[in-house]
Simulated assay, not measured.
Amino acid sequence: MIDSLYEHQTINNEQLGLPVGKVVCIGRNYLDHIRELGNDVPEQALLFIKPATSLVALDKQLPLPVGLGACHNELEVALLIKSPITKGTPIVLSELIWGVGLGLDLTLRDLQSSLKAQGHPWERAKAFDKACPISSFIPLGQFEDVNNLDFTLAVNNQLRQQGCTANMMRSIESLLVEITTCFTLLPGDIVLTGTPAGVGVLNSGDKLALTLTNRYKFGCEFI
Rank of each mutant, 00 (worst) to 15 (best):
residue 108 L to R: 13
residue 123 E to T: 14
residue 211 T to C: 11
residue 182 C to R: 14
residue 58 L to V: 04
residue 22 K to G: 03
residue 52 A to T: 03
residue 133 P to L: 11
residue 19 P to D: 03
residue 182 C to S: 15
residue 213 T to I: 06
residue 141 G to Y: 06
residue 174 S to Y: 04
residue 125 A to E: 00
residue 187 P to A: 11
residue 132 C to H: 11
residue 9 Q to S: 10
residue 216 Y to G: 10
residue 53 T to D: 12
residue 109 R to Q: 13
residue 114 S to W: 03
residue 168 M to T: 12
residue 124 R to D: 06
residue 172 I to T: 15
residue 91 I to T: 09
residue 113 S to N: 15
residue 219 G to K: 07
residue 200 G to D: 07
residue 113 S to P: 02
residue 55 L to H: 10
residue 145 D to G: 13
residue 49 I to V: 15
residue 107 T to W: 00
residue 218 F to Y: 14
residue 1 M to L: 11
residue 147 N to K: 09
residue 212 L to Q: 00
residue 189 D to R: 06
residue 117 A to E: 11
residue 163 G to E: 03
residue 63 P to K: 08
residue 20 V to S: 05
residue 13 N to P: 02
residue 196 P to H: 02
residue 5 L to G: 10
residue 105 D to M: 11
residue 137 F to H: 04
residue 145 D to C: 14
residue 78 A to R: 00
residue 112 Q to S: 05
residue 198 G to P: 00
residue 35 R to P: 02
residue 200 G to F: 01
residue 101 G to N: 01
residue 109 R to M: 01
residue 125 A to P: 01
residue 153 L to I: 01
residue 197 A to P: 02
residue 155 V to D: 04
residue 9 Q to E: 10
residue 97 I to F: 11
residue 83 S to T: 15
residue 163 G to N: 01
residue 32 D to M: 07
residue 175 L to F: 03
residue 62 L to R: 02
residue 66 V to N: 07
residue 23 V to N: 12
residue 119 G to D: 08
residue 39 N to M: 11
residue 171 S to P: 10
residue 169 M to R: 15
residue 177 V to M: 05
residue 171 S to A: 08
residue 158 Q to T: 13
residue 5 L to C: 05
residue 126 K to H: 08
residue 144 E to G: 15
residue 169 M to Y: 02
residue 173 E to Q: 14
residue 101 G to W: 00
residue 135 S to A: 10
residue 96 L to M: 05
residue 35 R to C: 04
residue 59 D to A: 12
residue 142 Q to N: 13
residue 66 V to E: 11
residue 131 A to Q: 11
residue 26 I to G: 02
residue 129 D to C: 06
residue 142 Q to M: 11
residue 21 G to S: 07
residue 71 C to N: 01
residue 39 N to Y: 14
residue 154 A to T: 07
residue 12 N to T: 15
residue 124 R to K: 15
residue 223 I to E: 07
residue 128 F to W: 14
residue 193 T to W: 08
residue 57 A to V: 03
residue 141 G to K: 11
residue 116 K to Y: 10
residue 61 Q to D: 09
residue 168 M to D: 01
residue 32 D to I: 09
residue 103 G to T: 13
residue 16 L to M: 15
residue 21 G to M: 05
residue 127 A to R: 06
residue 173 E to W: 05
residue 201 V to N: 08
residue 64 L to W: 02
residue 27 G to T: 08
residue 9 Q to Y: 07
residue 150 D to S: 14
residue 207 K to N: 05
residue 154 A to W: 08
residue 11 I to T: 05
residue 140 L to R: 08
residue 50 K to V: 04
residue 23 V to S: 09
residue 196 P to Q: 07
residue 14 E to V: 07
residue 17 G to Q: 09
residue 170 R to H: 12
residue 136 S to F: 02
residue 160 R to A: 00
residue 208 L to Y: 00
residue 3 D to P: 01
residue 192 L to C: 12
residue 177 V to E: 13
residue 214 N to L: 04
residue 168 M to I: 10
residue 59 D to W: 01
residue 210 L to I: 12
residue 84 P to L: 02
residue 175 L to R: 02
residue 29 N to V: 03
residue 113 S to T: 13
residue 164 C to Q: 12
residue 28 R to I: 06
residue 51 P to Y: 12
residue 108 L to F: 06
residue 122 W to T: 11
